[in-house]
Design a binder for these strands. Structure first.
Lengths: 260, 260
DNA sequence: TAGTGGTCTAGACCACAGA
DNA sequence: CTGTGGTCTAGACCACTAG
């Protein structure tokens, strides 16, 4: 799509010509407001890549550092994201996710008219680390299956999963094709259902290999969600750690007063 | 507590003397690792204020900007926070919060051995905005109660609340003392129970007046939680928007498979 | 190989907090 | 008033992506 960047430059120049926003003093805030306005009005649509930082900072008349401050702010708000060394992009709307269901990734993404894909990065038998050992009640260094998967929405990597499964309970699991629903495999191959789970969530950042696999820069904000899944009998079926590219996600749930 | 800062400088100098961490190339990452290590080992305890950026960057031999990159990373991870123009502080452990209960702030904070406090910043009758109007099924600009509260854990402001309540249902509400549990007031004064709620959560940033009321800088990462609370009969009892200083919080919940 | 974002430096001034 | 963090500039080099 040649010319795309030129069109984007024009759009931004036009926004600039409309004059300063109901001003707000600091310059990186003004830059943020300019871009945020263009996104709100739809002049910059989701998926669009911005011109390079060097082109932009000159166009806007601010130092490159100031421009980056503005972009980082938009990233933290969830309206822009970047692909490592590949540029800044306008983010699509957040996907809604209800953590109180045990519904799978493919199900809820597809239900919102988006395209889910999964790619298994590795599946191996490894010595269990301290954390997973305590979850499963294993001894340190006992063997355990570790599965790494990357999941995309509309072909954008948004989620990296670390899944631990006890090989005693599910022998031969990693010989299966794991690009689909894991719980479907546990159900159909092993006749085991996950009936409840303990979920923990908090915002953090992406670092090292996780950031790399998602094509994002060190320090990209993220939402960490871990899930200890259990069978009806109460043993752990899987221990799941999800690193979400955080502006991809919005959590929605309904709750009932338990006292009633 | 004079001398505190000197002690902290010593601690950091000592950490520095232990030599570079299992290296990681970039300098702001090294600085991050140094400070993160001192926090993990307990040499820098929660609540401690770091020396000024100018002292630190000289001590560490990096530019001030690089130091700030490291501190910003630690902030995004949730291990440090800052008070606007007052310095950088080691954060206490995150408080656990179960969004699937309708349990109040005071209850769950106290249950974890921390000290909760609430301060009502304002309570007024205002014309309803578009968003709240649609939640309550009111016409635009109908009058509605808007209550602003700031809540602290161990005297640190961590949460700003915007609460909307329909004055038709709860006449005279803002004449009450609102520093305690709102749901207790609705229950005891009006005999109305909140029995269920629709909860939405996503990470974002703090800006403008919200950031100011929490003594944090523009762009501080946050967790936004909104709650539409309903009575048994199904009408909205309160519409609650919570802006959490995000590294204060960790969400924990258990879920059951609904299909069962 | 050219151009990108990522990192880093060494300055400067301002607004505000706290004594 | 002094010192703090907050903001901003104008450079530079590196590691990597994309052609």
């Amino acid at each position: 799509m040649p010319g795309d960047i030129e069109a984007t430059i024009d759009t931004i120049a036009r926004g600039l010509a409309r004059g300063p926003q109901p001003h707000s003093g600091r310059s990186y805030i003004e830059v943020r407001n300019l871009i945020a306005d263009l996104i709100e009005t739809g002049e910059l649509a989701p998926g669009i890549r911005l011109p390079s930082e060097r082109v932009l900072h000159e166009l806007l008349g601010v130092a490159r550092g100031t421009l980056r401050d503005a972009l980082t702010l938009l990233e933290a708000e969830g309206t822009m994201h970047r692909l490592d060394r590949r540029g800044w992009f306008v983010s699509p709307p957040r996907i809604r996710y209800d953590p109180t269901t045990l519904e799978g990734f493919h199900t809820f993404v597809a239900a919102q008219g988006r395209k889910p894909t999964t790619h298994t990065l590795s599946k191996r038998l490894v010595p269990v680390n301290a954390e997973a050992a305590s979850v499963f009640g294993l001894d340190r260094n006992d063997p355990i299956f570790l599965i790494l998967r990357r999941r995309c929405i509309d072909d954008r990597p948004v989620l990296l999963e670390h899944i631990y499964v006890d090989p005693q309970r599910f022998p031969g699991l990693i010989e299966q094709d794991l690009d689909g629903s894991l719980s479907a495999i546990l159900r159909e191959h092993y006749r085991i259902l996950t009936t409840h789970a303990q979920v923990t969530m908090y915002p953090s950042i992406l670092t090292g290999p996780v950031a790399q696999e998602l094509n994002v820069s060190q320090g990209t904000p993220s939402l960490f969600i871990s899930r200890i899944c259990r069978s009806e009998e109460g043993y752990v079926t899987e221990y799941n750690q999800n690193f979400w590219h955080y502006n991809a996600l919005k959590l929605v749930m309904s709750v009932q007063d338990r006292a009633r």
